[in-house]
Nucleic acid binder design. Sequence first.
DNA 1: CAAGATTCCTGGGGGC
DNA 2: TGCCCCCAGGAATCTT
Length: 313
Amino acid sequence: MPELPEVEVVRRGLERWTAGRTIASAEVLHPRAVRRHAAGPADFAARLAGRAVLPPRRRGKYMWLPLRDPEAGPGRDGAPAEALLAHLGMSGQLLVGEPGREREKHLRVRVAFTDGGHDLRFVDQRTFGHLLVADLAPDTYAHADDAPGAAKNGEGLVPEPIVHIAADPLEDAFDEEAFVRALRRRKTGIKRALLDQSLISGVGNIYADEALWRARLHWARPTETLTRAEALRVLEGAREVMGAALAVGGTSFDSLYVDVNGDSGYFERSLDAYGRRDEPCRRCGTPIRRDEFMNRSSYTCPTCQPRPRRARY
DNA sequence: CAAGATTCCTGGGGGC
DNA sequence: TGCCCCCAGGAATCTT
């Protein structure tokens, strides 16, 4: 399941393989893959054809390729106005490879480039992921002191459909104090808050459990009872675990999460809580417990992460 | 308005 | 061996 580290691995692959190239054409093989592009698949393809792609950017689990008109000469500020926005959902893959290779079974969108080199394919078995072309809007999380000239790569801009997505904890723009304040103002359980992308982005079910295990907090802990120190501990746990996962190429349980070259990450063996039902806690040896919550699994150590007397879901 | 429930989707795997 | 059912879960959209 692609969360922040997995998406970042893909973003880096795109940076290497697509930045600076010009799109020749795009082909939508399954309309559901572009369902959030309101103007429809034909408009989606038309907006990509002939555009050059700038280095990819990412916020949380979303990534985007700012688009530029290659013929735009001097006299304009050169700042991109639109971007190709992608979310991988549960099973989405962005793959780069030889144009002539066989079509993947769940190929949804194919993008060809004017140089005739490697193409870009969006493959998605469960079709929870999607692509769209969107206007770029000012980023409310951006620092005001961005370097001059940065705008030409779309810095300080974010696709309009994701302006409500909070900064992620690996961004410079992430405001720790604002996060702690917002978290403690909520009246819900800590895990639900971590999964709410408008508070902190990039955290999904796997890394939420890992961050909580590191912080020694139970998933049903009411946010309004968290101390400042506890809130910072969860944040630190999230940063550490996602940073460690990124360093080894992300987490992969099967062939559904892969980088742009189709290779899997190695972080699964390093998980401390997620998926470890009945296995000994790596801190204290107590068997890890699985609970059901929000129609998904939550894994905790009953000793290190005792259930609060007053639980919130 | 905020919190919680519902909804979309497909193939792998377990049970019988 | 085959079939049925459950399960995985991000986030928009809904209901309360």
